[in-house]
Structure formats: C-alpha cells, structure tokens
Amino acid sequence: EVDTLELTRQVKEKLAKNGICQRIFGEKVLGLSQGSVSDMLSRPKPWSKLTQKGREPFIRMQLWLSDQL
C-alpha cells in the first residue's frame, strides 16, 4: 500500500528543488497532461480507492523518486 499523500508531497518537493515544471514531469515521466498531473498532485486519491490503471502514475512517481526511472 502506497501513502499517496506523502508520495505526492515528496514529488512536489523534488520538482521544486530541481526546477522541474509539472508539464515536463507529466509528459516525460508519467505520460500525462499537465492538468492531470496538477490534479493528481494536489488531490491524490487514497491507494485503496485507485484502480490498477489509477495506481500506475503513483508507481512511476515512486520509481522516479528512487532514481530508477
């Protein structure tokens, strides 16, 4: 189980620290539009309420944070 709230907090922190905009992060890392990324980072759904497809971007965020992506 992933703590989506904590994960998105860490992602936002790393984006800010490295000067990466959400649009680029969305396109290059998540394969999503800036609007989708913005929504996901500001209002993450609980892991238990996400479908497999809904969980994929959060898994990619985890990999990106651990420099595996």
Rank of each mutant, 00 (worst) to 15 (best):
S38Y: 13
Q34C: 04
G31A: 05
R55K: 15
L69K: 12
G54Y: 07
T4C: 04
G19I: 02
L5C: 12
L7I: 11
P44H: 05
R60W: 01
T51V: 09
K28I: 02
L7K: 14
V2L: 14
I20T: 11
Q10F: 05
R9D: 06
R55M: 02
I20G: 02
L65P: 00
K53V: 04
I24A: 09
W64T: 00
D39G: 14
E27L: 09
P57T: 14
I59H: 15
F25A: 00
S33N: 13
L50N: 00
A16G: 09
E6Y: 07
F25T: 02
D39S: 11
Q68L: 11
D3F: 08
E6K: 12
S42T: 07
G26R: 04
Q22K: 10
K53H: 06
L7Q: 08
P46F: 14
V29E: 01
L41W: 05
L69Q: 10
L5P: 10
S36W: 11
K28R: 09
I24M: 12
M61K: 00
K28A: 06
T51I: 13
M61C: 04
I20R: 02
K14V: 12
W64L: 00
I59D: 01
Q34L: 13
L63S: 15
T8C: 12
W64G: 00
K53R: 10
T4P: 07
S33Y: 09
D67L: 02
E13V: 05
G35D: 08
E27S: 13
M61Q: 00
D39A: 11
L30E: 02
K28H: 08
D67G: 13
E13C: 06
S36D: 15
I59C: 04
K17G: 05
G31E: 02
R43K: 12
S66L: 09
L63K: 15
K49L: 13
L15W: 03
K45Q: 08
V2T: 08
L65W: 02
L41R: 05
E56P: 01
T4M: 14
Q22H: 05
G26L: 07
Q10T: 08
L32F: 08
Q52S: 11
G19Y: 09
K49I: 09
T4N: 05
I24R: 10
D67H: 04
G31C: 04
I59K: 15
N18A: 09
G31W: 03
P44I: 09
L5S: 05
L30Y: 02
T51Y: 13
P44K: 08
S48D: 14
L65N: 00
G26S: 12
M61W: 03
E27C: 09
F58Y: 15
S36I: 14
T51M: 08
N18I: 09
R55T: 03
Q62E: 03
Q62R: 14
N18H: 13
Q52N: 06
G26W: 01
R60G: 04
I20P: 05
D67E: 13
R43D: 14
K28E: 12
L32Q: 04
R23Y: 09
P57S: 12
T4F: 13
G31Y: 02
I24C: 05
D67N: 11
L41M: 06
V29P: 03
W47P: 00
W47F: 03
R9T: 08
